[in-house]
Design a protein around this nucleic acid. Structure first.
Length: 475
RNA sequence: GGUCCCAUCGUCUAAUGGUUAGGACAUCACCCUUUCACGGUGGUAAUAUGGGUUCGAAUCCCGUUGGGAUCACCA
C-alpha cells in the first residue's frame, strides 16, 4: 500500500506552530514510507477566508522543504485541490447519501436550531425534519425551499475505532449529533468535505488534532453508508502555550513567520517542533528534515499535550547557528549590519558573533556599540577580578594610545602581542591593560570579543579616536 | 453538565513488571578565558493521590484529584 497523507489547512491567516507540526508529521509519515504528501486547501467557510493566506501556506512549506506531491498549484490525479472548486462533487455525494439513508433534508431556519439547544448543553438538538418523508422533502427542495442536508444517525450502542496514537476509542452513538453536512449556501461543512475528499483522494492516513477524536465516529458512519473503507487515524495532541492554553494565533502567539522574523532558522524550528510530541527513541536531538524522514515512526508519537518552550528552541537555534559555515553565517548576518561604517571589519565581526548569538536578532543588541560610541560612566572601568578601575584606566590608556598609534599590523594576534608586551613593561596584569581598553572602545560591560578583537573590528582610525575621547573623559 | 482524552524533574522526554528512574533545555557551582559567549566537569530537581493485582508497579486494574477536548450552517 502506498501511503498518502494530506495537509489540509483552511486559509484563515498565519501559519501557526501547531498547524506546522501537524503538517510535518503528515509529511514525515508519508515520506518515511515512500508515500505521497498532498496539499489541499479547505476554504468552505467564506466568512473566515483571509486574502493571501494560501500564499503564506505555500511559502512556509517551501522554506522548510516540505514539498508536496499534489496540490492546487501543481495539480495531480485527484484534483481540484481547493474545496471551493469541488462544490459540485460534495452536492452530488450529499444527495446520494440522502438516498442511502445516511442523511436527510432539513428545513429548519438557522436560528431555530440554536434556540432549541439547551443552555446547559444537556439536551441534544432533535431535528423535526428527520421524520419528513423523503418524497415530501424532495418536493419542497424542488419547490425552491431553502434547506441543508443533515447527517442521519439511527445507530445505537457503542461506536468503536482504532487510533494509531490513542489506541481503541469507544464512543456511544447517542453522543453523536446529526450535524449539517451541506450548508444552505451549497458548500459542505468540514464534517462532510473531509470524508469525501479523503476518500476520493485516496488518503490512507488521516493526521489531525485530537479535538477530532470524538467526532471521528460520525465520519466513520459516513464512510460506512457509502460503503467506503475508512483511513487509518493518527490523532495528535495539541501544542500548548502553557498548561491550560493551546498555542493559538488569536492571542498573538508566535507563528512560524514571527519566529523567522525574530531570527530563528527554519531548520531549527522544524527540528524543535518535531520533538514536541515525538521522540526517536535515541538520545539524538539534532535532526535535519532528511534525518527525520529516515527515522520517523508513528509508534513514537506522544499522547499528552506538549508546551512550546521558546527557551529550548532558542538553544537549538544557537546550535544551528554555530553549525553554519562562516560564509553562510556572514550572509545571514549581513542585513543586521546595515548602516555600519565601511571601515568596520565585517568578516571578523561575523566570526566573533557566530558563537555568541542564539538568534540572528541577538546581533542587533550585541553590535549596538559599533555604530556609535555608547555613553558610559567611569565606574564601568571598575572590575574586581581584573583589578581595574578608573584610576588604572587613567594611567594605562595614554600608554595604550601611544603603543597603538605606531602599531602597523592591525591583526588580532599582533595587537594582543603588543599589548601584552606593554603590560609587561608597565609591570601590570594583562587584564589591567585590556579591560580598560575594551571599555574605552565599547562603553559596554560585555562585548562580543575582547579588547583586541574589537579594535580589529572597528578599525585603527576609529580605535585611536575612541581611545583619545576616553582619555579626555578621564582627565 | 454528558461523553472522550491526558498525567515522570520548572519544560521536552526515556524507561513497554525488576534501572542508584536515564537524557536534553533551563538553573547553580567549578574549569577554560583579554569582558561575554563557546567548550568542559559536576550539582539541585520528577513518577499527582488513595486503593488493589504481583515476590516485585512509573509501568497493569479501580477510585480520587487536576488539566484538556467536544457538544456550530468553524475547521
Amino acid at each position: 500500500m502506498k501511503i498518502r497523507t494530506r495537509f489540509a489547512p483552511s486559509p484563515t491567516g498565519y501559519m501557526h506552530i501547531g498547524n506546522l507540526r501537524t503538517a510535518l508529521y503528515e509529511y514525515l509519515i508519508a515520506k518515511a514510507n515512500g508515500g505521497d504528501f498532498i496539499l489541499r486547501i479547505e476554504d468552505t467557510d467564506q466568512k473566515r477566508y483571509v486574502e493571501g493566506a494560501t500564499d503564506i501556506i505555500y511559502a512556509t512549506l517551501k522554506t522548510v522543504g516540505m514539498n508536496w506531491d499534489e496540490g492546487p498549484d501543481i495539480g495531480g490525479n485527484y484534483g481540484p485541490y481547493i474545496q471551493s472548486e469541488r462544490r459540485n462533487i460534495y452536492a452530488e455525494y450529499a444527495h446520494k447519501l440522502v438516498e442511502l439513508g445516511g442523511a436527510h433534508y432539513c428545513f429548519c431556519a438557522k436560528n431555530d436550531t440554536e434556540e432549541e439547544k439547551d443552555e446547559t448543553l444537556n439536551i441534544k438538538f432533535k431535528d423535526p425534519c428527520k421524520h419528513i418523508p423523503l418524497a415530501e422533502a424532495k418536493k419542497r427542495v424542488a419547490a425552491g425551499e431553502p434547506y441543508v442536508i443533515r447527517q442521519t444517525i439511527n445507530k445505537t450502542g457503542k461506536s468503536k475505532y482504532h487510533d494509531e496514537v490513542y489506541g481503541d476509542i469507544e464512543i456511544d452513538y447517542d453522543e453523536l449529533d446529526e450535524g449539517v453536512l451541506l450548508k444552505s449556501d451549497g458548500l459542505p461543512t468540514y464534517n462532510f468535505a473531509n470524508v469525501v475528499d479523503d476518500h476520493l483522494m485516496q488518503i490512507t492516513h488521516v493526521v489531525r488534532g485530537n479535538e477530532y477524536i470524538s467526532s471521528t465516529p460520525k465520519y466513520n458512519l459516513i464512510y460506512e453508508d457509502f460503503g467506503w473503507e475508512h483511513p487509518f487515524y493518527v490523532h495528535v495532541p495539541p501544542v500548548m502555550k502553557d498548561a491550560q492554553h493551546k498555542l493559538s494565533k488569536r492571542n498573538g502567539d508566535a507563528s512560524f513567520q514571527d519566529l523567522v522574523k525574530k531570527g530563528y532558522l527554519p531548520e531549527a524550528i522544524i527540528n524543535y517542533i518535531a520533538l514536541l510530541g515525538w521522540n526517536p527513541g535515541t538520545e539524538q536531538e539534532i535532526f535535519s528534515l532528511d534525518e527525520l524522514k529516515q527515522c520517523f515512526a508513528v509508534e513514537r508519537l506522544n499522547r499528552s499535550p506538549a508546551i512550546f518552550d521558546i527557551t529550548k528552541l532558542t538553544w537549538m537555534n544557537g546550535c544551528y547557528i554555530r553549525a553554519l559555515s562562516e560564509e553562510k553565517f556572514h550572509e545571514l548576518a549581513l542585513p543586521y549590519y546595515e548602516g555600519m561604517s565601511p571601515s568596520v571589519n565585517l568578516k571578523v565581526l561575523s566570526k566573533t558573533l557566530q558563537p555568541r548569538v542564539e538568534t540572528l536578532q541577538d546581533i542587533t543588541e550585541q553590535t549596538d556599540f559599533i555604530r556609535s560610541v555608547l555613553p558610559f560612566g567611569v565606574e564601568l572601568y571598575s572590575n574586581k577580578k581584573m583589578k581595574t578601575d578608573a584610576e588604572v584606566a587613567k594611567s594605562v590608556l595614554p600608554k595604550v594610545l601611544e603603543a597603538l598609534s605606531s602599531q602597523e599590523d592591525w591583526s588580532n594576534e599582533a595587537l594582543f602581542a603588543s599589548l601584552k608586551h606593554l603590560a609587561e613593561e608597565l609591570g601590570v596584569k594583562n587584564g589591567q591593560v585590556l579591560y580598560p581598553l575594551r571599555i574605552a572602545l565599547s562603553g559596554k560591560e560585555t562585548t562580543p570579543g575582547g579588547a583586541t578583537e574589537i579594535a580589529v573590528i572597528i578599525g585603527k582610525t576609529e580605535t585611536l579616536k575612541r581611545l583619545q575621547d576616553a582619555i579626555k573623559k578621564l582627565s
